[in-house]
Design a protein around this nucleic acid. Sequence first.
DNA 1: TAAAAATGTAAAGAAGTATTGACATAATGT
DNA 2: ACATTATGTCAATACTTCTTTACATTTTTA
Lengths: 86, 86
Amino acid sequence: MFQRYTCIEEGVEMGKSQVKNNIRKLRFNHDEMTQEQLAKKVGVTRQTIIAMESEKYAPSLELAFRIARIFGVPLEEVFYYTPEDE
Amino acid sequence: MFQRYTCIEEGVEMGKSQVKNNIRKLRFNHDEMTQEQLAKKVGVTRQTIIAMESEKYAPSLELAFRIARIFGVPLEEVFYYTPEDE
DNA sequence: TAAAAATGTAAAGAAGTATTGACATAATGT
DNA sequence: ACATTATGTCAATACTTCTTTACATTTTTA
């Protein structure tokens, strides 16, 4: 066994997801929207935005839709799948 | 009030998600692919397919991408967001 | 250069998603 | 009718995403 995620000695090492995003770029293209403002608009905390931007994990599908909607673009213009990691 | 989630007396009642999908249709349009076959192709269990088709919950973004890829269509052709419930 | 605003990090716990296994019902074929 | 295949349900557990709180660092602006 073991396993799909890089585990290091102590603690649980998070696997980075294979879904990438352009949130940061999109924020800047939208009047330099801050993480805080985006968080509020989509109804999550700033932590969640940070985690997504730093790709610690991918958002839920529902949250992905809400974010795309805020930026007024289709979901696949914000998020994209990179299997096998490039 | 009330409320996005139907909560019943005892136990936790699952809220249905606001993300809908065409998985069932797509399966049939693809040579009547069974739940089992789809599950195997995208690398999840049959339970997960059942839960998504019956909209008990929406998949993760990554799984959504994998499913769309199997059917050879863009993600938004499989899943769509219906805020406020239609 | 000091205050304020924006971003980053960490960790515990809640909520949501996925797995496993066991069994029930429906549909298809022989 | 019987066996087989496909679908559905339930429940426990594991894993992933999101929240909350609190504090550290960087960037911006007065």
